[in-house]
Design a binder for these strands. Structure first.
Length: 887
RNA sequence: GCCGCUGUGGUGGAACUGGUAGACACGCACGACUCAAAAUCGUGUGGGAGUAAUCCCUUGUCGGUUCGACUCCGACCAGCGGCACCA
């Protein structure tokens, strides 16, 4: 009788120690066999500790890692800490505890929790972004960017919290309000450091190279949208009023008079441009405004400046704007059109000015309707409906206008059209002078050529992506290694002076001037210029959290290198990352920044050519684990599950397997504590006096009984295991862990011709061997089963491996291989369908000829019943699958 | 508003390139063990009709293609996620 109960608490700790002692997860610097780099997104070690979402991704990557190792690969599987950032600093503001201290505690706790789950990380490579030996290289990368003009200082509007008197990152603004105090955020133009991610050397590659990545399509799609490429044209509109010389950058050299340059993706609608709109911040506003409109324009500008981003982009609000009094000339038809300013035109996109085509753009249409500006249709959706449309546009007033082919159509036709909707598609040109009747797609090319030939515009590409605001008015981040010298301007620190250490401060409160708390440390701020030795001041902004995380995966390869970011030979040996596992919430931030920095490092030769210029070959996103109420887990909802308690109650193996069993890895799925018992029953039960018929107890009992001579052992790898090996191998490769686990259960429970491994309890409460194992135990199959189980439940697998008399580690065994021949059944059951409905099943030899099968089917009593009086229209046999009759 | 994803029993979910829908697990019901309960084990479990054999219905809704549709096509509905005046 089995007396020993499975005790995960003891067993798991024992094996964790044994693994650590044997250093079996330590990756070599230079792998000799096939290499695999399996990476988890490293966590921010918050004070709250792990939540159940963390182990989901870590378990999946661990299963995959263990699987690859058993398949004979050498795997780099590291872990570290992304430890700069707000929570620790906020905590310091409240309590005065230095962030470094808080984090030391948090990391210790996180590490303990992660290790309790038995993940096979190489802890000798652990990194921490707040370690000066680490951020020395984060700063070094910044200096390289700066030297090449890719990091620059500028005034940029940022989110500003008026109460906390600090700039906020986008991710700290929730619903237009400050995450910390709830105050509505305003826009403030302050000095910033920006990184030129939009540089022409990179932006197109960031877009195009997505094609070669094995990432979820949805993530690639998100990045493409975020980059937001649009192709169109820049068009110059000459000003009619010439009060003043415009700023140089808006002047096309070959033109003598000042122009307003607009960007449009629809040059084909140029004949329908009935007015121009400048953003309120546009530098030419003053120049075009007439004296009688000046007051209204200036008032509007002031109002717009006061508005928060939220107000400005609120679509529910009606469009606003004012007329400047100025006019410009539409280059294609020489019409004089009014210039307005409105805050629906953004200063930061394109040229900050647009040509408005109300007939073919919804926003322009809305604006034109409100301010009674002319609406001229220039694209007809369909030639055949042309007459109807003509009536619609002109309100039936003058259909003849459409055929007038006049260069001056615009002045004849501006009948305001308030009823019809906007048409944004392709079609046939109308009201477009000599181009009428031309297909709009063709016309688009033609008119751009015309603009280029006449020096009035040119083909152009625009992107939504903006340069990356790279500074924070915060304390807990990497200091930006730049000094401002009175004579030399901005000067980067020489590499030998890195790291520029973050000094200790007494007060973490922002200064209120938009500077970080560092600004108040005089002895730190005042520095010598590295170039001229003269007086200089240090930059007091710090880097954003993304700075440390966009290259950390390079450092794991060579975590202690003091001379360079990482040894190129070691990078060659391990990079790129073969599999990256993490949450989808990083789709456009971390994953885009990391790609950019990697490409940059590739270009300057830090990342060797052999590694390629994309860091993450394959990406898998874990789905969110929801609370039991199917809602996102959050403290306020009270539906947070604490993994510590789950591990304590059920053990790490059960926790790991349950998380994998819940559903598809990439889907969001609700936690259900009751469901855990299914896994628990399968693996082994910790307490309770009843007999347990699952993995732990059975294998242990079998091992003991075989050794005691009570059962005979039969070697020879019975066929039942082969389909199990095949299924599990394929499913791990495809991250389908939920079905792996059900397959493990099926193998053990016995079904589909597989033996039932479960012993039966007799009346006396004693174990009684029946069925397959009553005769002889197939030890080879049992050992293979344990190997298949081992990536999922590594501790239990080691324990039972040992009980089977093995002295080595199961996690270092070779993954079993299946024999395709032994999976094929000699006899198969084939369903018979009549008109798509299954009426019977027939047991036949798998190689039965179709003619013979047909005879058998037609002779079948149940089938005959359905065929009475009906001629058979067709008989179809899909080998080994189905017989289908139509009557 | 635009883009993307997802809709299968009481629940989480299976179903290979179109081929027996509901694997596996939870829950529930009944039974065994127990003085009893818990734990454990066994049997059953999509809905409906029938003692039964068996039959009908069923993968968000409606239609289409096919011998055959959860799977492919079209329209619609619902939920989730992202972007949000990007010209």
């Amino acid at each position: 009788m089995v007396s020993e109960k499975y005790n995960p608490e003891k067993v798991e700790k024992r094996w964790q120690k044994a693994w650590l002692r044997a250093k079996i997860f330590k990756a070599p610097d230079f792998p000799k066999k096939t290499k695999a780099y399996v990476l988890d997104m490293f966590p921010y070690p918050s004070g709250e500790g792990l939540h159940v979402g963390h182990p989901e991704g870590y378990t999946a990557s661990d299963i995959y890692t263990r699987f690859l190792r058993m398949q004979g690969q050498e795997v780099l599987h590291p872990m570290g800490w992304d430890a700069f950032g707000l929570p620790a600093e906020n905590y310091a503001l409240k309590t005065g505890t230095p962030p470094a201290e808080t984090l030391k505690k948090n990391i210790k706790n996180f590490k303990k929790q992660i290790q309790a789950l038995g993940f096979s990380y190489d802890w000798s490579r652990e990194i921490n972004t707040t370690d000066p030996n680490y951020y020395q290289w984060t700063q070094w990368i910044f200096v390289q960017l700066f030297k090449r003009g890719l990091a620059y200082e500028a005034f940029a509007p940022i989110n500003w919290c008026p109460k906390d008197k600090t700039g906020l990152a986008n991710e700290e603004v929730v619903g237009g309000k400050c995450e910390r105090c709830g105050t509505e955020v305003v826009r403030k133009n302050i000095r910033q450091w920006l990184v030129k991610i939009t540089d022409s050397k990179y932006i197109e590659r960031l877009l195009k190279d997505l094609d070669k990545l094995d990432w979820p399509e949805s993530i690639k799609h998100l990045q493409r949208n975020w980059i937001g490429k649009s192709e169109g044209a820049l068009v110059d509109f000459e000003l009619v009023t010439k009060n003043q010389e415009p700023a140089d950058k808006f002047k096309v050299p070959s033109l003598k008079s000042p122009v307003i340059r607009v960007f449009t993706t629809r040059p084909d609608t140029l004949f329908g441009a009935t007015y121009l709109v400048l953003s309120p911040e546009h530098p030419l506003v003053e120049a075009v405004t007439t004296s009688e409109n000046r007051k209204a324009v200036e008032d509007y500008q002031k109002q717009a400046a006061k508005k928060s981003d939220l107000d400005r982009t609120d679509l529910a609000k009606e469009k606003t704007g004012v007329f400047t009094g100025g006019y410009a000339i539409n280059p294609v038809n020489n019409e004089k059109i009014p210039i307005w300013i409105a805050d629906y035109v953004l200063s930061s996109y394109g040229t900050g000015a647009i040509m408005a085509v109300p007939a073919h753009d919804e926003r322009d249409f809305e604006f034109a309707k409100k301010f009674k500006l002319p609406i001229i249709q220039v694209i007809d959706p369909d030639l055949s409906s042309r007459e109807n449309t003509a009536n619609a546009i002109t309100g039936g007033a003058s259909a003849a206008i459409l055929d007038a082919h006049s260069e001056k159509i615009a002045s004849v036709a501006p009948l305001p059209r308030n009823d019809k909707e906007v048409y944004i598609g392709e079609g046939v040109m109308v009201n477009s002078g000599k181009y009428d009747g031309m297909n709009s797609v063709e016309f688009k090319k033609k008119i751009v050529e015309w603009l280029e030939n006449h020096d009035k515009g040119k083909r152009a590409v625009n992107y939504k992506l903006r340069d990356w605001v790279f500074s924070r008015q915060r304390y807990w981040g990497e200091p930006i290694p730049i000094v401002h010298c009175e004579k030399c301007g901005n000067v980067a620190l020489p590499e030998k002076d890195l790291p520029l250490k973050l000094p200790q401060v007494k007060n973490y409160q922002p200064t209120g001037t938009g500077e970080s708390p560092l600004a108040s440390i005089k002895e730190w701020v005042n520095a010598k210029c590295p170039k001229c030795g003269g007086r200089a001041k240090r930059e007091t902004n710090t880097m954003p959290q993304w700075a440390g995380s966009n290259w950390y995966f390079l450092r794991y390869v060579d975590p202690k290198n003091g001379k360079q970011l990482a040894d190129p030979e070691k990078l060659k040996a391990w990079l790129p990352v073969d599999l990256y596992v993490g949450g989808a919430e990083h789709a456009v931030l971390h994953l885009l920044y990391a790609r950019f920095i990697y490409k940059f490092l590739f270009d300057i030769g830090v990342v060797p050519k052999e590694c390629g210029d994309e860091p993450f070959v394959k990406l898998k996103n874990q789905g969110l684990i929801l609370g039991e109420d199917n809602q996102k887990m959050s403290k306020s909802r009270g539906n947070v599950v604490n993994p510590d308690e789950v591990i304590k109650q059920y053990g790490a193996d059960t926790m790991r397997m349950y998380e994998m069993f819940m559903g598809p890895f990439e889907d969001a799925k609700p936690w259900n504590t009751k469901g855990i018992v299914g896994i628990q029953r399968f693996l082994g039960i910790k307490e309770g006096k009843g007999y347990v018929d699952r993995v732990f107890t059975v294998i242990k009992q079998v091992a003991e009984d075989v050794q005691a001579g009570k059962l005979s052992s039969k070697n020879g790898f019975s066929k039942s295991i082969h389909s199990t090996i095949k299924k599990i191998t394929e499913d791990i490769e495809n991250f389908r862990f939920n079905t792996c686990i059900s397959e493990l259960m099926i193998f053990f429970n016995g079904k589909d011709g597989k033996p039932d491994w479960r012993p039966k309890l007799n009346k006396k409460g004693e174990w009684e061997a029946v069925g397959e194992i009553g005769k002889a135990v197939d030890m080879d199959a049992l050992r293979a089963f344990l190997k298949l189980l081992s990536p999922f439940a590594p501790h239990l697998a080691e324990e039972l491996w040992q009980k089977l008399g093995k002295k080595d580690f199961i996690c270092q065994q070779t993954w079993p291989k299946h024999d395709e021949q032994r999976i094929k059944a000699k006899e198969i059951e084939i369903p018979i369908q009549i008109n798509g409905k299954v009426r019977d099943k027939i047991l036949v030899a798998s190689d039965v000829p179709e003619a013979e099968l047909k005879k058998m089917v037609l002779a079948n009593v149940k089938i005959k019943k359905w065929l009475v009086g009906k001629p058979i229209k067709s008989f179809r046999y899909v080998r080994d699958r189905i017989i289908s009759l139509a009557v």
